[in-house]
């Protein structure tokens, strides 16, 4: 070993910009892809404009929040198959309580629903920690429970919400190019996730997902981190349910089911490692928009919009299979 060994093992020091690009390459790529989709949509559909952007933002809002919820669970090494059921529960709770209420009361109810979502998520997390049953099984079982409770609250689609509350998601903010739905999304993610991510508690979520043993040795309370991650997941899921109430104006006990799987698809497409510890919120949000715009484009192209689901599933499968192929080749080399 030569005396220059210490310098030899030192990693090359990339510039700040280069590193930012390399580290966020997937996110940047996804936003470019989203931009390309928007341009493509404009190309195939001349009149695509501010109104359609607004429609897109409204359509994507519940999925984006479902993706945010799933991300919170997945970065800490878990997965939550009850996101859709929780969204449905929040949706029907809000719609049945808000019917014929004033806007002010509706806001209070919304806060209540968010708290309920966080508590339900905390219960999911506590069950994972206490029973030591794999996250998948616990949340699968809990998806029945929350789905059942949702049916109990509102057996059939119904309920309602004051128009002012619905207007939170529709309409535009300041200019016609900034839909309210986008503002709601940015606010909820920006107010919940980004402050958390900066704290030691937020870091501990990533730490537990990345390497639970090393996290424990670094003094992290692993059980607490797990429960917090599911609590945040429940909170976002409840926000997604409220978004469903805003965008549809009613409550439907089965509306959420679609979002469990699509949320996972958005997370996978968003480059969040299902093994935990890696990934942020920005990319899954872009993925949610992309997954929403695809059926729209198919409609414009005259194809059956039902291919949208095929494409969602295929994207999810292909992304994870490609990731598997890459790691396979790396380990084989």
């Amino acid at each position: 070993m030569s005396s220059s060994a210490a310098t030899a093992i030192r990693p090359a020091q990339p510039g700040a910009l280069e590193r930012a690009v390399r580290r966020n390459g997937w996110t940047i790529g996804l936003y470019l892809l989203l931009l390309a989709f928007l341009l493509f949509t404009k190309l195939i559909h001349e009149s695509f404009g501010a109104f359609d952007i607004e429609t897109l933002a409204i359509g994507a809002l519940p999925l984006a929040l479902a993706a945010a919820a799933q991300t919170a669970a997945v970065v800490a090494g878990g997965i939550d198959l009850s996101v859709g059921a929780l969204m449905a529960l929040a949706n029907v709770l809000a719609a049945s309580l808000m019917l014929n209420q004033s806007f002010g009361t509706a806001l209070g109810i919304a806060a209540l629903v968010l708290i309920m979502g966080a508590l339900a998520g905390a219960l999911n997390g506590a069950l994972v920690v206490a029973t030591k049953v794999p996250d998948i099984v616990v949340t699968l079982a809990m998806s029945f429970v929350w789905g059942g409770v949702a049916l109990l609250v509102l057996p059939h689609p119904g309920g309602g919400a004051p128009p002012e509350f619905q207007a939170l998601a529709s309409g535009r903010f300041l200019t016609e190019w900034v839909p309210n739905a986008l503002v709601v999304l940015v606010l909820s993610v920006g107010l919940i996730w980004y402050p958390l991510q900066r704290t030691r508690l937020g870091l501990s979520l990533y730490a537990v997902g990345s390497d639970a043993l090393a996290a424990f040795r670094s003094g992290v309370d692993v059980a607490r981190a797990k429960i917090v991650s599911y609590t945040v997941c429940g909170l976002f899921a409840a926000a997604g349910g409220l978004a469903l109430t805003m965008t549809t104006g009613i409550g439907s006990p089965l509306a959420g089911t679609y979002y469990t799987l699509s949320g996972v698809a958005a997370v996978v497409l968003g480059g969040v490692s299902l093994a935990g510890g890696r990934g942020g919120m920005l990319a899954p949000l872009a993925a949610a928009y992309i997954l929403t715009i695809i059926p729209t484009d198919l409609l414009f192209l005259g194809a059956d919009p039902n291919f949208g689901q095929v494409i969602q599933g295929a994207i999810m499968v292909l992304v994870v299979m490609a990731a598997g192929l890459i790691s396979l080749r790396r380990s084989g080399a």
Partner: peptide, 20 residues
């Protein structure tokens, strides 16, 4: 072969199949 988590793989395929 590609060592995808069974849950994710089969979930994705169920979306594909149902969509088709």
């Amino acid at each position: 072969v590609l060592r995808v988590q069974p849950l994710i793989m089969t979930l994705g395929m169920s979306l594909v199949v149902a969509g088709f």
